[in-house]
Amino acid sequence: KELVLVLYDYQEKSPREVTVKKGDILTLLNSTNKDWWKVEVDDSQGFIPAAYLKKL
């Protein structure tokens, strides 16, 4: 599985998104959309702007 590093805090703005903190390491589930990547946070899944993430 691929991991990503969160570069900036992000507060979810819709139920399909997730809240993350700078420095979090998350599992990347889908990066086919260049603007929004799907990640797994704890036991939930959701989208975060790709610009907030860096592949490890």
Rank of each mutant, 00 (worst) to 15 (best):
K1A: 10
K1C: 14
E2A: 11
L3W: 13
L3G: 02
L3K: 12
L3R: 09
L3E: 06
V4Q: 00
V4R: 00
V4D: 01
V4I: 04
L5K: 05
V6L: 02
V6E: 00
V6S: 01
V6F: 01
V6K: 00
V6R: 00
L7I: 08
L7D: 00
Y8T: 07
D9I: 04
Y10V: 01
Y10L: 01
Q11N: 14
Q11D: 13
E12H: 13
E12V: 15
S14N: 12
S14P: 09
P15D: 12
P15V: 08
R16N: 14
E17T: 09
E17K: 09
E17S: 10
E17Q: 12
E17P: 09
V18R: 05
V18L: 15
V18C: 09
V18E: 02
V18I: 14
T19E: 04
T19W: 06
T19K: 08
V20W: 05
K21F: 10
K21Y: 10
K21P: 01
K22H: 05
K22G: 05
K22T: 06
G23Y: 04
G23T: 01
G23F: 03
G23E: 02
G23C: 07
G23D: 05
D24T: 11
I25Y: 04
I25Q: 03
I25W: 03
I25H: 03
T27K: 12
T27I: 15
T27P: 10
L28Q: 01
L28Y: 01
L28R: 00
L29V: 11
L29E: 01
L29W: 04
S31M: 08
S31W: 10
S31R: 06
S31P: 05
S31T: 08
S31A: 12
N33E: 09
N33P: 04
N33C: 10
N33Q: 09
N33A: 07
K34P: 14
K34L: 09
K34N: 10
D35Q: 11
W36A: 03
W36Y: 10
W37C: 03
W37E: 00
W37Y: 04
K38S: 09
K38H: 11
E40N: 05
E40H: 06
E40L: 12
E40K: 12
E40C: 14
E40P: 00
E40F: 05
V41F: 12
V41M: 10
V41G: 08
V41Q: 07
D42E: 13
D42M: 12
D42Y: 11
D42P: 07
D42C: 13
D43P: 03
S44A: 14
S44C: 13
S44R: 15
S44T: 14
S44P: 00
Q45H: 11
Q45D: 09
G46L: 15
G46N: 06
G46F: 15
F47C: 14
F47Y: 14
F47W: 15
I48M: 13
I48T: 03
I48F: 02
I48Q: 01
P49Q: 04
P49K: 04
A50T: 06
A50Y: 03
A50R: 11
A51I: 13
A51E: 11
A51D: 10
Y52Q: 03
Y52S: 05
L53I: 06
L53K: 01
K54V: 13
K54D: 07
K54Q: 14
K54G: 05
K54F: 11
K55Q: 07
K55C: 10
K55A: 06
L56V: 10
